[in-house]
Design a protein around this nucleic acid. Structure first.
Lengths: 242, 242
DNA sequence: GAGTGGTCTAGACCACAAT
DNA sequence: TTGTGGTCTAGACCACTCT
């Protein structure tokens, strides 16, 4: 590894190697599911020891950017339906069992971004967004009403999709090369009004859990804003703090 | 490290070393704030290489069991007021700034455990608990009403404390050697009734965020149950998913 | 059998903190 | 100056996967 390889100096060598490898994920030199070169190949290419490459890859594996499999190789992490749902969907039943929802699309529109969408998606005032309105069921009962917003510029053809999958994150990755790797959720309690009262079959004023999620990609770019209102009489939002 | 050192075989050496070191934290051979022997001393004692000890200690540092300081040594992690509050208190204001609450104790009693306390604290039906009822303020305004329950057997003298600190986790550690290292929070939305309406100055039926937290120690023992009802008109419960 | 990641070791050098 | 953890290297051997 020459001095010109990396302008951010004063970093340990393994951290520089990691930055370089992460950059190749960002610029899509390596795409989800693809196998990376072996540790020895990378070490030879970058002129560092195998141990240094290993430390970089181990950190990337800890951050779930890559998956390492003994005897097979190192692969770029990819989203499957189940992974994305289990990873980001945090509602559990009374026995702490994670539940996976079904989804029904209620409406789909392209419109000018509102103030929250501008702020969270990092777009300009006046930009357009695609908005998806969904009702989600757990154990067959309607529990969640949510509105999903994505920037039209980032994903031009979402509204033309014939059939939207239950987990949209696989679609973002497959059709637009956008991998949701991080998310921030801001949660509060709100009193139900229309349309939740009708859709969820509850009285006006019933307390609902509102989850506002901003999902971002590897390089910190906002991919999706999602505001979900959940009826939490039978379910809980569970978080583990460590 | 001889074969008799550890009965759980078929584990990598560094994992066995880690288990052994963690055991010394559990049995309080090393207590919070105390410095551990150096990597070389541990390596010599356990008859493994320094690199193997290093890998064990690095994992323990990642789990925040120990703190490593270059040039000084490795120390058992300890709770300070600020650390515990910042780590477990997740309410933020509109600018995503983490807020630290003041606390006012409303009542303190010893009583027979209810069903939830029995379940969450892993105690027997009929066992006694100490219950603390608190009102917490953010920016001077009452925002949280909470009830904290701890097993009387585990912490016999909490009710005799002259003055309970804002963060109880430091007290648990100092007076009873119980370090809260993990917590599970189950969150739902509820409609306010007494006494929250009076204490928080809100109308009956206002949606409140209810956070039920079970805090556990290193060996998985439940230390505390806490049910907090939060007025989330000005604040959000924020979680980062990675 | 060949190639991969996983473990373990040994040694060198560096950055930092205490004395 | 001494001792600590942090980085980097090189090499050996193991466990697993594929062909």
């Amino acid at each position: 590894m020459t001095t010109a390889d990396n302008l951010t100096k004063f970093l340990p060598l393994y951290a520089q190697v990691k930055q370089l490898l992460v950059q190749r994920l960002i610029d899509k030199t390596w795409t989800p599911g693809m196998g990376l070169p072996s540790e020895n190949q990378l070490a030879a290419e970058l002129k560092v020891s195998q141990g240094t490459v290993r430390k970089a890859l181990d950190e990337m594996a800890a951050e779930k950017l890559v998956v390492r499999r003994q005897g097979r190789g190192t692969f770029v992490a990819e989203h499957t339906q189940e992974q994305a749902l289990f990873h980001f969907f945090r509602l559990v039943d009374a026995e702490d069992q994670q539940k996976i929802p079904e989804s029904e699309v209620l409406s789909l529109e392209v419109a000018e971004a509102n103030e929250l969408e501008v702020q969270r998606l990092g777009i300009n005032s006046g930009d357009q967004v695609t908005r998806i309105e969904r009702l989600r069921r757990l154990d067959g009962l309607p529990v969640i009403y949510e509105i999903i917003s994505v920037a039209l510029r980032l994903m031009p053809n979402v509204a033309e999709e014939a059939r939207l999958p239950n987990s949209l994150y696989g679609l973002y990755q497959r059709d637009y090369g956008l991998s949701v790797l991080k998310a921030v959720e801001r949660v509060r309690a709100v009193n139900a009004s229309t349309p939740e009262t009708t859709l969820l079959g509850i009285k006006s004023g019933t307390a609902l859990l509102e989850i506002e999620r901003t999902a971002t990609s590897l390089d910190g770019q906002a991919i999706e804003l999602r505001v979900s209102r959940c009826h939490t009489d039978k379910y809980r939002y569970m978080v583990e703090l460590t």
